[in-house]
Each structure stands twice: as C-alpha cells, then as structure tokens.
C-alpha cells in the first residue's frame, strides 16, 4: 500500500470543491493540466483574475494576489482569449500612433525660440 495518495485523488478533491478550492492558497495548476471545470466566469479564481486583468496588463499587481493572479492568467485556458483580446487592442493603439513624429524643423525652431527667451 502506497503512503502517498495518487494525483488523481487531489484532482477529484478539487473537483468536489469546485473553483473555491483554488481561491485561497495551494494553487497547484501545472501546464497542460485540464482544469477547465473550475474556470467558468462564475468560478472564484477566474472572477478574481478577471477583475484584476487591467492591473495585470498594466504591471500594477501588488501584494498577496500578485503571484496567484499571474499564475492564473498564464495557465487558465478560459481566461487566455480575454488576455489576448486586451493585448490585441493595446497593440492596435500603439501601432496607430507609432509613426507620429514632429516635423524635423520643429526642434531647430524651438532652439531659436529658446535663444530669444
């Protein structure tokens, strides 16, 4: 008889608790692990993560939730398209304004103005 419970035990346990099991500590997701059952928008982990999506993308996550939310977005297949959606949006803003530069004569003109100032 093995002393360690098999991984299937933990998965079944988590399933029993639904999303709530991962809302606190002990987030044991691993890449490739299918945990779609706890990532509906109603699930606590997804809800928490989505409510912090802008903070995450803006690099403004602070405190205890930081690691948890980062890990969630990196691994959750339900949230992934939403992260991509927001990233596509931001990329479009950057692209549209990337080519905007002042006319070359503005700097010289400015230097002349400063000499008179």
């Amino acid at each position: 008889m093995s002393r360690k419970p098999d991984m299937g035990f933990f998965h079944r346990l988590k399933r029993m608790f639904g999303g709530k099991a991962s809302s606190g500590h002990g987030h044991d997701h691993t890449p490739g692990h299918d945990c779609g059952h706890e990532h509906e928008h109603g699930s606590t982990a997804c809800q928490e993560a989505v409510s912090l999506l802008y903070d995450y993308l803006d690099g403004e996550l602070r405190g205890v939730s930081e690691e948890r939310v980062k890990a969630h977005f990196e691994l959750c297949r339900m949230c992934h398209p939403h992260v991509r959606f927001e990233e596509s949006f931001r990329a479009a803003l950057k692209r549209a304004t990337a080519g905007e530069a002042p006319p070359p004569e503005l700097k010289d003109h400015l230097l002349d103005l400063l000499k008179e100032a």
């Binding site: 398209p81 991509r84 959606f85 927001e86 596509s88 949006f89 990329a91 479009a92 692209r95």
Partner: peptide, 9 residues
C-alpha cells in the same frame, strides 16, 4: 475571441 480584428483596423 482574441480580438484579431483590432489589427485590421
């Protein structure tokens, strides 16, 4: 779902 349309605007 990933908002690829943003890139086409």
């Amino acid at each position: 779902p990933e908002g690829e349309f943003f890139a086409s605007i």
